[in-house]
Every structure is written in structure tokens, then in C-alpha cells.
């Protein structure tokens, strides 16, 4: 594949940023299992809101770090398509209680265009969906991180592009992520329920880890699995059935966008200057204004 696994290269600061945000996200979801009873009692009510604000900020910082100066018009347009496809599917599935076929598009985008694009298009697909349905709320940062992570992971899957294994690996990935997504998203408000949770399924501040885990497991089985399992299965089936065709469409789209195709200016034959080759990702110092990609390495 000549197309850019490097459409948005993940440089080390961006990778660190994604890593740290991932850790904060993990803490935001799993803190009830680790903290002492006092902390949990004091903050059980505020923590979800605190984390919503914090993750909202961090997700945005992370997006800025990943994309800083690396988006040209073509990348933006391709991201726009991925976001629109994800958001549009969200719009379609608004009535079907969380049966989100959106992940399927994010997985394919991440797979074809690399982890950087996977992360950004996941986050943007969720945002677009929320803006389209008017569903902006504190859940948005959590979903952005989750969907971004799913796209990133799809880009990092160690399978060769175009191989037979790819299809099955992606289907399995879709199934697992569908389930894990629900598992995490419920954790966001589970401690918030406190004593409001069903008997034996609630968060008990300060209780041993395995107790709370068991409670949460039961809670998940009782309330959420019924939605998450069909979602995972739907996404996996979609990947199996439409995945190969869609992968080809995305690859073709990336090829036609000519990411990474060299741009060469040569003097007309008969003159003596050497050809002037430009890096594919632009460009030279323009005379008008300093540009944000002006210092790109040659």
C-alpha cells in the first residue's frame, strides 16, 4: 500500500499526550475501584462532573497536539468524510438505543489511514454525531476518548493490510470494542448511582476491589449487556460483510487524494538548472504570511 499510514504521523509528543489522556481516561472510569471510602463518599457526587470537564479539556488538547500543523485541506476533507459517515450513522441509529454502527466506520478509517487519523476521526465522528442530534453533554468527552481510542487501536492492529486475516481480526476487534465501550461508559455514572443502584449491584465506597468488581459485573449484566452485545455483534457482522469493500473504498479514496505523491517542478528541457523537488507534504516558505507548516523539515 503506497497510501499514507502516515497521513497524520504520530510524533512522540503527540503519542505521549495520547498516552497520558488514555491514563486519565482510564482513571476517570475506574477510580471507584481504587479509592478509599472517605474519598469516594466525599467525591462520589462530583467526580463524574469533574472528570467530564477534565477529559473535555484533555481531549481537546490531545486533538490539538495530534493535529498541530499537520492537517492540510486534503486531510481535513477526508476526516470530514469519516466524521460525516460516523455522525450520519449515528443520526440513522438514533432510534435504536445504542446500536451504534458508527464504530465500524471509525475502525475502517483507522485501519486504512493509520492510528493518527483513526484517533482524530473517532473523536470527530462522535462530535459530529452529537452536534447533528443536538446531543452535546458531559458524556461527550468520554465518548470522544473511547471512540478515538478505538480508531487508534484499529490503526495499530498488527495485521498485514489486505490479508485474509485482516477481515477476521477487524471483526473480532469490532466485537470486543463494542462490549468494552459499554463496559466503560457505564462506569462513568455507576458510582454516581450510589445507593440508587439495584440491591447488590451498587458501588460500595471503600469495599474491597473484588466486591465492587462483582457488583459492577452484575450491574453490567443486568442493565447494559443487552444493548452492548447486539452492538458488538452488529459491528462485527458489518465488518465481516462490508469490511473488505469498505477498506477498498477508503484505500482508493486515500490513493486518489494523492497523499504522499511527490510534487516536482522541473525547468523546460534545454535549460540547465536541476529539477526542483518538493516534499509531498508542503511546502516552501511563502512570501505572504508565515504559515503554520512553514518549518516542515525538507
Amino acid at each position: 500500500m503506497m497510501t499514507g499510514r502516515r497521513v497524520i504521523p504520530l510524533r512522540w509528543p503527540a503519542a505521549v499526550a495520547v498516552g497520558v489522556v488514555g491514563i486519565v481516561g482510564l482513571v476517570a472510569f475506574t477510580w471507584p475501584f481504587f479509592v478509599t471510602a472517605d474519598v469516594a463518599r466525599d467525591h462520589g457526587n462530583d467526580a463524574p462532573w469533574l472528570f467530564a470537564v477534565l477529559l473535555g479539556l484533555l481531549a481537546v488538547v490531545c486533538l490539538a497536539e495530534v493535529t498541530a500543523g499537520r492537517l492540510d485541506a486534503k486531510t481535513i476533507a477526508v476526516l470530514g468524510v469519516a466524521a460525516a459517515a460516523g455522525g450520519g450513522l449515528r443520526l440513522l441509529s438514533a432510534g435504536t438505543a445504542g446500536l451504534e454502527p458508527m464504530f465500524f466506520v471509525v475502525i475502517v478509517a483507522g485501519r486504512v489511514l493509520g492510528p493518527g487519523v483513526g484517533f482524530v476521526s473517532g473523536a470527530l465522528a462522535v462530535t459530529t454525531g452529537a452536534l447533528l442530534t443536538g446531543g452535546v453533554g458531559p458524556w461527550l468527552p468520554f465518548q470522544m476518548i473511547c471512540a478515538g481510542g478505538i480508531g487508534l487501536g484499529a490503526g495499530l492492529l498488527p495485521v498485514r493490510a489486505g490479508s485474509r486475516v485482516e477481515r477476521w481480526a477487524l471483526a473480532a476487534y469490532a466485537l470486543v470494542t463494542g462490549l468494552v465501550f459499554g463496559l466503560f461508559m457505564n462506569l462513568w455514572f455507576w458510582p454516581f448511582l450510589g445507593t440508587g443502584a439495584p440491591t447488590g449491584m451498587g458501588f460500595v465506597p471503600g469495599a474491597p476491589l473484588q466486591d465492587n468488581l462483582a457488583h459492577y459485573g452484575l450491574f453490567y449484566l443486568a442493565t447494559s449487556l443487552g444493548w452492548d452485545l447486539p452492538r458488538g455483534v452488529l459491528n462485527a457482522v458489518l465488518v465481516l460483510v462490508a469490511g473488505p469493500a469498505l477498506l477498498r473504498v477508503f484505500r482508493r479514496g486515500a490513493r486518489r487524494a494523492a497523499f504522499g505523491v511527490p510534487v516536482v517542478f522541473a525547468p523546460a528541457p534545454g535549460r540547465d538548472a536541476a529539477p526542483h523537488r518538493e516534499p509531498a507534504e508542503p511546502h516552501d516558505e511563502p512570501p505572504v504570511v508565515p504559515l503554520h507548516d512553514a518549518e516542515h523539515p525538507r
Binding site: V263, V264, F265, P267, A268, H283
Partner: peptide, 12 residues
Amino acid sequence: VPHFSGGTLTGR
């Protein structure tokens, strides 16, 4: 052409 499309432009 060629900044956006890629490719080689000879001449001016």
C-alpha cells in the same frame, strides 16, 4: 496541478 494533485510539471 501539481501542488495538490501530485505529479511533475516541466516548464513554467
